[in-house]
Amino acid sequence: MIENRLARRKVLQWFAAFAAVDANGGPVLGRAVVPGVVNGYGTDPSLATFNQRGDYWSLTMTQQQRAVTEALADIILPADDHGPAASAVGVVDFVDEWISAPYPRQEQDREVIIPGIAWIDSEAEKRFGALFSDLVDPLQKQAICDDLCDSAAQSKGQRQAVQFFHRFTTICTGAYYSTPEGWQAVGYVGNMPSGAFAGPPVEVLDLLNLTQTVLE
């Protein structure tokens, strides 16, 4: 367990690296990345299949990193009236696949997420005497998360921690809402073959004071 934790020196290095990523952030669209040269899924993967995480590259998180990912993801997307917890719909595997992927955008995220996971463990230990993944009281986990939501964070270190949390949340949220449970939670209905397209229901049109203009 201990060997998976980063030394404070390493965490500071991470913060420096994070600053570089931050300055250079944004989409990779404009960068001259030649496809097919990394060990990704290549330019001609089989599409009409149902892939499992780890089909194309190994998942690289340690058990402890996965444990923290699960604990944090389930605080970010808990089981509630909207749907199940993140870990129940494969979000941990998704995050592991994401930060293990051999693409530039994901490699950037890895440089943020892996040290961030170590940092949040050490932060929990400092404040509550236990690793984040071992915290039992949700209020303790929330206390750390509340600090990470503070966009008015002052110090550079705090800002970087806030950005880690935002990036981690973004990856988890994308993963969560790509599942049928996530669809239900967000209100997406579709991906179902049908004999006709009815358009928005009358209830919706009435709410918006709209009239369907394409008639039979």
């Binding site: 899924y41 993967p45 009409a48 494969g90 599942t179």
Partner: peptide
């Protein structure tokens, strides 16, 4: 007829199907 991913979801794809240099 056989190669099109008609009903596959994001959670069936690597990285949720998001863009990469291999599949922009």
């Amino acid at each position: 007829e056989t190669e099109t991913p008609m009903m596959q979801r994001g959670d069936h794809a690597p990285l949720g199907g998001s863009s990469t240099p291999d599949k922009p």
